[in-house]
Nucleic acid binder design. Structure first.
Lengths: 225, 225
DNA sequence: ACCTGAACACCGTTCAAGT
DNA sequence: ACCTGAACACCGTTCAAGT
């Protein structure tokens, strides 16, 4: 077959874009070299000309989506407000692209200080340094926020993935989870039983932001002491 | 070949034990049905008699290691001290078994309220409810702690994995990371540059616990208001 | 009931060959 | 320089057959 014309030429960006679309549509198992080459009407060798391997493709897809979420900069406000806005932007990006929850962990374990973590640290940390707490606490405070964001968004994305592919709705899903605890040895999970009502009624986004506020309160309270 | 004698009979537990050993030795890619059946001197069909598929095997491995970490109960102390002890136990389990960092995310996305999350919620939450803050805040406070633990331990495990298999030591690793930022566009990462020194000298475990304290401070401060 | 092991479908990756 | 596509090694899983 003839070579591609300039208009439909492959590029790293076009490949990454197609990969994100496949991941969004069908989750992690939706992206294989077969589905990808079919969508791009090419062969596997063409992909390998632009990227080293599948890991690099997944890293690039992750990085592209996270970068988008971070460049939608929040309006100017107090450092607290801006931190809330950046955190919520990440939370929503992970909600829209649930495959990120697994992928962030994988990429982290491949190269912990690759490109995503520094980007997020920088965005959050810049606002932490404007909170008026001692410089010696900046790194720890930023770490606490970033780790919380990763953990909470991961849990949320996990929920989102099950809701999207599992064929159940949110109410049914939460009820099933709570029912499962109640079926457990009653003496073993007293705390979970006591908060079952709160779990059934909570709003994920709101709870996520309350957690951010909790940490912000801790940062400024410790910074003053 | 003759069937196994009772002494070396297979069981779910023996299979999970072998899987954990393989994961500890060589990370995620160390566990395949080939390596597993070789180690157990059996065939793939035998594994499938005891477990439904590889996902269930990984879930069981994860669950077994986390359960171990949580049953090493801390001595009696203030709720704060006990929360610190439980958190540190999880942190160290993930440090000893770095494959958990990826696996927790994967398992979460398969069944968010499976067996690991409730166990951890219960252990942390029971102590949160002893802090003397309003019951309405228990769920959110516990979520914040658990998500922070997941996020922070994940990052730490990622570091541990690179240090173990990457052939570099910690000082070199941190220096390389910091050097990488400094090589970046100087105007793009001013915050990271400003804390480079703190990053180079920080102790992971200590920073993790400081983050726990930060959140505990936030919980009790908000609880009072 | 528990295990064996050949066979299958699918995956990421390579590479000689084309333009 | 960029792309094609057959071929390869490896993986998780199945299943008819054995004890």
């Amino acid at each position: 077959m003839a070579q591609r014309t300039r208009a439909d030429a492959l590029s790293r960006e076009r490949i990454v874009e197609a990969a994100v679309a496949l991941l969004d549509a069908d989750g992690e198992r939706g992206l294989t070299f077969r589905t990808l080459t079919e969508r791009l009407a090419t062969g596997p060798g063409a992909i390998y000309w632009h990227l080293a391997n599948k890991g690099e493709l997944l890293d690039a897809a992750t990085d592209s989506v996270i970068a988008d979420a971070l460049t939608a900069e929040p309006g100017v406000g107090s450092p607290q407000d801006e931190i809330r806005a950046v955190a919520l932007g990440l939370f929503e990006a992970i909600d829209r692209h649930p495959w990120l929850s697994t992928q962030l962990a994988v990429q982290l374990s491949r190269s912990p200080w690759g490109t995503v973590t520094p980007r997020i640290f920088e965005s959050i940390g810049r606002r932490v340094s404007a909170l008026g707490v001692p410089e010696a606490t900046w790194f720890t405070a930023t770490s606490a926020l970033v780790h919380y964001i990763f953990g909470a968004a991961g849990q949320n994305a996990a929920n989102a993935q099950v809701l999207r592919f599992g064929g159940t709705d949110r109410a049914e899903f939460l009820r099933a989870a709570v029912d499962a605890w109640e079926g457990l040895d009653p003496g073993e999970f007293p705390f979970l039983k006591s908060i079952a009502g709160q779990v059934r009624e909570h709003d994920d986004r709101e709870q996520f932001l309350t957690g951010i506020d909790l940490i912000l309160t801790g940062i400024t309270a410790q910074g003053r002491s």
